[in-house]
Design a protein around this nucleic acid. Sequence first.
DNA 1: GCCGTTTTCGGCCCGACTGTTTTCAGTCG
Length: 586
Amino acid sequence: MANRELAKIFNEIALYFEMDGAPFKPQAYEKAAINLETLSEDVKDIYKKGGREALEEIPGVGKNIADKVIEYIKVGRIKEYEKLKKKTPVSIDELISVEGIGPKGVSYLYKKLKIKNLKDLERAAKAGKIRNLPNFGKKKEQNILEGIEFVKRSKGRFLLGEILPKVQEIISELKKLKEIKQISEAGSVRRRKETIGDVDILITSPNPKKVIDYFTVMPGVVKIWGKGPTKASVRLSVGVGIDVDLRVLPNSQFGSALQYFTGSKEHNIILRKIAIDKGLKLNEYGLFRGPKMIAGRTEKEVYAALKMDYIEPELRENQGEIEAALRQARGKPNGLPKIIGYKDILGDLHCHSNWDGGNNSIEEMAKTAQKMGYQYIGIADHTKFLRIENGLNEKQLIERNKEIDKINKKFQASGSKFQVLKGCEANIMADGSIDIDDKVLAQMDFVIAGVHSQMKMLKVQMTKRIIRAMKNPNVDIISHPTGRILKKRDEYEIDFDELLKIAKETGTILEINAFPVRLDLNDVHIKKAKQAGVKMVINTDAHKKEHLRFIEYGISQARRGWAEKKDIINTWPLEKLIRAIKNRED
DNA sequence: GCCGTTTTCGGCCCGACTGTTTTCAGTCG
């Protein structure tokens, strides 16, 4: 899609203007970039259908930026962007990823030392050339070198699945300190974004100094970036190293600070504007009328004082949640969704067993699921086309089903209602056919089908391929529908709207794959699927029993996509689930 | 550069910390 490329270009244009200190233009381009990126429809299609007018309907896109979008669609380039790049030919992205370097620094370093990229920067810093520049110094030069090391090692952001367990560990470690009254993660971790830059933790305590002192000498701290009376910033030696910011505040400000530091930035900007409209001021210290603080102890209090319902952190991306909360508080329709809760899942339908080379037996997987409080588990082993994953052929699938029957009898004999469902994750071949005979597929409780080969097909063909699979009456679920791998591989070229249309027609269920590198569908897709009335299922794709806990990340993603229990079939009890799978009109 | 039932011109979110200064710019969140 052109959307992401345009967003990237506009973000860079914003940075170029920021280098020159241009007022307001940077924010305008940034805003347009954000809105383009979260758009689920291809701008090319928007332009084709509605022309310039339709483009200007996109928030943040006015006459000027629309011109640039059109130029990009028609010529594949944007002249002004090329001009800016020529004037300052630097890898901005690369350079500003170094802690302490911003657009102004990039501009200055280029003018003075012709620094264009990370390599130039490293060379200049090592040669001691930076310390002599005005506004730079020895300390800053050292920080730059350390920043470069970090960028090289981490290459950007961390997966939520890598970070969240560590954050929970840090919090429980800090909780040991009796001076700590309240504690919570904030920032993108609390919003459960799929990737995380760094971690924010907020604490209330009558003795901030003690807390800060304890935090900065915690096991695993390898560097203290800064340490003040109420704030500290450290790097932890977790994996390649992650930065953690800690703030200590009084109880009276915990809500407003949590709100403020949870973000997103875009969500907060709108909230502050709403405050201003009401003659109030909102910052991390509270909500104020003149000098008087009128809210701040809890987040609920802050939202209520702004005349809106409480908004769950996963929704705070300025994607309509504020308007919905305002409507809801006024008792009007189209309020906030009752998003799915973290304890609403009753079973996991995409689990591999040792039959296809997974780590654990069917029984071990089932028992772990039972312990998690599930009512059922679906075993979906790979099928024969995926030789590398020990995919099962028809005969082996029938054999495996017999074992599942036996295990179910055992559960029954022990008085448990827990049930193992017979499934498979079959392969959608290049022509859209399935690699397992229909007669055997028909014997399954459910059939998942997924693309595992030839992922670089053209859009029309890939769309046709998946549609043909959806139209197979034996196929119930499409696994990881867009195929992206975070930090590694983009989604396939597909016409997602067309897929939704056919999914609705055929009653095909789309998977929200909870595996941390997948999280596929993403939040935007989930929201679209929900709006189209397409049902979804949250699955972990577990290859061993420890993976079953990944369900949490899938739920987060579903929440970020505004999904409710009624949209997610594995929040339903077994009988209703089976009905939904088999009687597809349901 | 965008936006508008108070506006087609004049606004556009806010504060702390660092490293460098000697009153502040840049960066970050």
